[in-house]
Design a protein around this nucleic acid. Structure first.
Length: 113
DNA sequence: TAAATGACTCGCT
DNA sequence: AAGCGAGCCATTT
């Protein structure tokens, strides 16, 4: 089922501009690059967990490149079966190279504002 | 209001 | 190299 968002519910972070900095940072990530939660946290001036929170609240249909955010270890934080495969595929489509252990070479692909 | 949770990170073992 | 625990702070219950 879907929520009726026709009014100012305040429950929708994207619409309510809860973390405009984070969403802006996501759009700032160039295509074919990734960044870590900590890097974004650094930009917006909050903790890395809050970045994860903001991303988790994004709707599936979001236009934001949420998939370009990975852990500082170059590893996808989403558990398998909960979006891991999706993010992996999206990154592969952008040319991100994965290690045999499913790790990204951050020295090569990581981006920082 | 207080306690628990989490798409993190770092340091130690 | 890999695993474990503590710190972190907004959101949720």
């Amino acid at each position: 089922m879907q929520q009726q968002c026709l009014r100012h519910s305040g429950n929708d972070p994207v619409d309510s501009e809860l973390y405009p900095e984070i969403y802006a940072a996501l759009n700032s990530i160039p295509k074919g690059a990734v960044t870590s939660y900590g890097a974004i946290a650094r930009i917006v001036g909050c903790g890395p967990r809050q970045v994860g929170y903001a991303l988790r609240r994004l709707p599936k249909e979001t236009k934001l490149p949420w998939y370009r955010v990975v852990s500082s270890s170059g590893r996808i934080s989403l558990p398998k079966g909960q979006g891991y495969e999706v993010q992996h595929q999206l990154l592969c489509d952008e040319g991100i190279d994965f290690n045999l252990k499913g790790r990204i070479d951050m020295k090569r692909f990581s981006w920082h504002g």
